[in-house]
Computed example of a mutant assay.
Amino acid sequence: MSPAKNNMSFVELAASEVSNLWSSYLKSSMDLRLLEYFYASTENNEIKQVIEKMLNQSQDNLNELKEILIKENLTLPLGFTNEDVRVDALKVFSDTFILYFCFDLTHLSMSTYPTALSDCARNDVRDHFQKNIAFSVKIQNEIVDLMLSQGVYLKPPHVAIDSEVEFADSMTYLSGFFGGSRPLNTAEIANLTRIVHRAQFSKMVFVTFSKLAKTKELKQHFSKGRDGIEKVLDSLQGVLDKENIPISASGDYKISDVEMSPFSDKLMLFFVNTCLGIFCFAMISQAMTSSLRTDIVSKLDQIADDMKKYYGQGLLLAIKENWFEQPPQAVNRKV
């Protein structure tokens, strides 16, 4: 390593780097607790091997992040500890649903780590996110291959594609509220399908968490999330049904009733606010920017507004329960 590159590790961390390291620490500690329970409760050996790799990666991440933050004299986040998981709790999720869960965790990594990398300049911080991106790509490929081999991968629909090059010849290409709207293009089909598949997974998470939560307030919050997801499914599946575009659904979103929750209420709310919340916003934003039919944009805009209100309530609930860790902030120079 050249002296110039080595010295970059001693440059003071920028605000974006501190923020990304802090968020990565919280995510890795959440992943670790989820994966500890999944590893203990999974019976399928192939799925167990995938979980073990993700588990080891999460632990390595935490060790590396601790080293960087301590070196910078920054307070370590509390994150999630052994108190937030019961690895000896009875099995709640089917092995296939656990595999979907792991797939979802890699999706969040693939949507957050590249952004974090682009915000960072110091070599040790960039190395951390580069390693995580590489691992996320590798493990996601393994998960997809495993899903395909077990026949549980949710494939996007196949559609007949016009082979001729065409250009839109009028403003009616953007219409959709009234009769005569054009067929969906492939970008719109892909994005709507992605959101519907994610909504199907999210719905079952909300159903499960509403049963596992200890407090009445959190049970009601998760139930409200389930109702909101139902509206999303009804709205977007209606568009696809009208176009006679079939969409696959899992037949193994199975959960078992248990008396003891494997996860703390704090952990479940954090997962909902981050994995379900942040990633859903990213998917909807992508869908809105690539959709050119006004009826679809309107539906997505309404969904985004509803989600902002719901996840805002989730953040307030976390603050009320004293579960929200404040990210590092600048010194108040106004005093």
Results as ranks from 00 to 15, higher is better:
306 D>K: 03
42 T>A: 06
21 L>E: 03
60 D>C: 05
264 S>M: 07
101 F>V: 06
122 R>D: 10
101 F>L: 09
234 D>S: 15
227 D>A: 08
77 P>Q: 12
257 D>E: 13
30 M>Q: 07
80 F>E: 00
179 G>W: 00
32 L>P: 06
220 Q>I: 02
186 T>P: 03
244 N>W: 04
32 L>V: 04
3 P>S: 11
286 Q>Y: 02
333 R>K: 04
210 S>L: 02
41 S>L: 09
3 P>M: 13
289 T>P: 06
224 K>Y: 11
117 L>K: 05
64 E>F: 04
204 M>K: 12
164 E>G: 03
167 F>E: 14
13 L>H: 05
243 E>C: 00
174 L>H: 11
134 A>H: 00
94 S>N: 09
318 A>H: 10
90 L>P: 07
218 L>E: 02
252 D>K: 15
90 L>N: 12
293 R>I: 06
240 L>R: 06
125 V>P: 00
142 E>A: 12
18 V>E: 09
62 L>C: 11
255 I>A: 03
287 A>T: 09
56 N>A: 14
9 S>P: 09
66 K>F: 10
46 E>L: 14
29 S>L: 06
325 E>Q: 11
98 I>S: 03
98 I>A: 01
92 V>Y: 00
13 L>E: 04
260 M>G: 04
254 K>W: 14
248 S>W: 07
227 D>I: 03
206 F>T: 13
175 S>D: 14
303 I>Y: 04
115 T>R: 14
75 T>I: 05
258 V>H: 10
327 P>S: 13
39 Y>I: 11
263 F>D: 03
96 T>A: 09
246 P>L: 08
35 L>D: 10
309 K>M: 09
81 T>Q: 10
105 L>I: 07
